[in-house]
Simulated assay, not measured.
Amino acid sequence: MRLFQNQHVFDYSWDCITAANWKKYPNEVSTHVVAVDVLRRELDTTGKILTSERLITCKQSVPQWVMMLVGGSNISYVREVSVVDLNEKSLVLRSYNLTGSNLLKVYETVKYTPHPNDPENRTLFEQEAQITAYATFTKVCNKIEEWSVNRFHENAEKGKQGFDSVLVILDESWKQTDRIVDGLVEKVDETVVDLKKTTDIFLKETEIKSSKLATYYGYFSDAFKRSNDMNSDGN
């Protein structure tokens, strides 16, 4: 058995990384991944834990001697089960190969968590793969495992580059959305200010009109009172 381990820090928040994970494929770098199909998706009763099962289809160049061992096909399938836990703030993806598993088994675990030193802005990526070959001769097993580790390393590098490209695109999209929202908020604020000014002017005009009306009412009331007094004296 061979063990492959990898670690990387993304300069994005865990929330951004988790959202971008569902948009990771297809991308222009990881061309070996040709399809991703969702088989199952479940949300627990608390609404905090999302479990997804996906079938990943890969197509890549394979050495002739490997093609002969696995049956002469360069198409392979991988089953992936991921768990997003909002309570723990973790995204864990576990996968294993379905194709050629009688000859080679690859168990991979990927984990995304907020970086311990900067949890608001950075995300820690941890990857581990256990690669085990099954063959009659040890020399053949070693050769298969060595080739698999090298290929896994290449794909991991492509995966990182591809994810980086997706993050750049999504980050610009998020910033554009933020600018639109900020613009809308600014417009709303301006409208509220204008409405307040209009309301203040209306209230002031109403107050002035009410004051004049009250004055006129006083004049009319006094005049009416004097008229009644004069009529009473005349009688």
Rank of each mutant, 00 (worst) to 15 (best):
E88Y: 03
N87P: 01
G71Q: 02
N142Y: 05
N74E: 14
S61A: 08
N155R: 05
F125C: 08
V81G: 04
E80P: 00
C141N: 01
A135Q: 02
G72N: 12
G159P: 06
V62C: 04
K158H: 12
L104E: 02
V92Y: 01
V140M: 09
D164V: 09
E154L: 14
D164L: 13
H115A: 06
L103K: 11
W65T: 11
E126P: 03
T99I: 10
N87V: 13
Q127M: 12
I75L: 14
Y96A: 10
S101P: 05
S52W: 03
E154V: 07
Q127C: 09
T109F: 00
V106W: 06
G71F: 07
D85A: 08
W65Q: 04
E128N: 09
K139W: 13
L103A: 10
G100P: 11
V84C: 05
N117G: 09
F152R: 01
M67Y: 03
K105G: 03
F137L: 10
E53D: 13
L69H: 01
T113A: 14
V140A: 05
P63Q: 06
N155I: 06
V140Y: 02
K89A: 10
R79S: 09
I56F: 01
M68T: 14
Q127K: 12
E146N: 12
R54W: 05
N74G: 10
Q130S: 09
E108G: 01
S73E: 05
S101K: 15
V70L: 10
F152C: 09
K59F: 12
R54A: 03
S76Q: 07
S61E: 14
Q161W: 00
E128G: 06
V92L: 15
N117M: 11
V70I: 15
D118Q: 10
H153A: 14
G162M: 09
N74W: 08
Y96T: 00
N97C: 02
S82K: 02
Y112D: 10
K59Y: 11
K111F: 04
T123D: 02
P114D: 12
